[in-house]
């Protein structure tokens, strides 16, 4: 169980059963299996991009990257919890739309003359939490695959956002303090990143130091055993989706603040940052493996790659192709030493 509970998944097997030149191979495997492989891939990217454009390594760009990383970083914490138990949550874009729209309409904006202050946050976060709870309850109690339930929640969320938006004009923030908060700096780093870092810490604590975190990993490894050992499996499942919903709501609010305007499509494209980032980081879609740190590094890999390609001046016609190619090379390099143990092999 210890290995299952470990942040970076079960460790011992690969290295310890080998002999002969095993120690060298073990060293490589151990290194690449942990975040070291990912960190190495990131360092290589950073060095190459800095060489191509010295501005890449500037403080200004560091702040820019941390600003861009913050929304997907919040989302990947929820996504990792759900994926670790072998499920999937597709609802983030809908939840972000609903929560973001609810928040801006209840905060100082050009559309409504309402400013509920902290209540706006609580209502919007409550909306995200409720949608997450709904997904969790339907999934756990009615035994509907999470893929299907969360797809439904995505559209329910989007529907709520559209109803709130109505046929009126785009609401924009009228409070300078709120609009500037995400870019404001504390200790040289943007506030939006501090918020995301706080969420990541919360995710790490849940994952490593609570029954819920350990339970989710156990469910992902072997649900029947987790059930027979008396674990409240359904509660954990609902809990994971509820947290993912809550964080989806928070990401929706932050994205709305970053844009300065409300949009029903505020979560557009985020699903395909969060889930791939978690998987790139080594969180197996089959569940039972991976961890928050690795998922976070996956987010950094995706965002830095995109940012670096723009700064390197790669022609837009080639950008998608080059992005995919570098990503493939990076993932193969990171996953090569443990290819025999990957859960998804077909």
């Amino acid at each position: 169980m210890t290995s299952v509970m470990h942040e970076d998944g079960p460790r011992g097997a690969a290295g310890m059963k080998r002999n002969g030149n095993a120690s060298m191979r073990r060293l490589i495997a151990e290194g690449a299996k942990g975040p070291i492989g990912l960190v190495a891939a990131l360092v290589v990217l950073i060095v190459v991009f800095s060489f191509l454009n010295p501005r890449f390594a500037s403080i200004e760009n560091l702040q820019n990257v941390l600003f861009q990383v913050s929304v997907p970083l919040i989302l990947v914490v929820g996504a990792t919890l759900v994926i670790q138990m072998g499920s999937i949550d597709l609802s983030v874009e809908g939840i972000m739309g609903a929560a973001g729209m609810a928040w801006i309409l209840l905060s100082p904006n050009t559309r409504t003359m309402i400013d509920l202050g902290m209540w706006a946050w609580l209502i919007a976060l409550g909306l995200g939490l409720s949608l997450g709870l709904m997904t969790g309850v339907i999934y756990a109690k009615l035994k509907v695959p999470s893929f299907v339930v969360s797809l439904g929640t995505w559209y329910v969320g989007l529907g709520i956002a559209i109803l709130l938006y109505g046929n009126n004009s785009l609401p924009s923030l009228t409070s300078d303090a709120l609009a500037r908060w995400p870019t404001g700096l504390t200790l040289g780093l943007p506030h939006s990143f501090w918020l995301a870092a706080g969420v990541l810490l919360f995710g790490l604590l849940i994952s490593n130091y609570t029954n819920l975190g350990r339970g989710l990993m156990a469910i992902g490894n072997n649900e029947p055993i987790a059930r027979t050992s008396g674990m409240p499996v359904n509660v954990y499942k609902i809990g994971a989706f509820a947290i993912a919903g809550l964080l989806g709501g928070l990401a929706g609010i932050l994205a709305t603040m970053q844009l300065g305007s409300g949009s029903t499509d505020i979560g557009f494209g985020q699903l395909f940052v969060g889930i791939p980032a978690a998987v790139i980081g080594g969180t197996a879609l089959g569940g039972g493996e991976g961890g928050m740190t690795r998922s976070a590094l996956g987010v950094f890999l995706l965002i830095i790659l995109n940012n670096g390609l723009v700064l390197a001046g790669v022609d837009p016609d080639y950008q998608s192709g080059v992005f995919g190619l570098i990503l493939l090379i990076a993932i193969i390099a990171v996953a090569w030493p443990e290819r025999g143990r990957l859960k998804v092999a077909k």
């Binding site: 501005r55 200004e60 820019n64 700064l311």
Partner: peptide, 10 residues
């Protein structure tokens, strides 16, 4: 917004 930020840095 993201592309504009990257181009501002550049």
């Amino acid at each position: 917004g993201r592309n504009a930020r990257d181009l501002i840095v550049k």
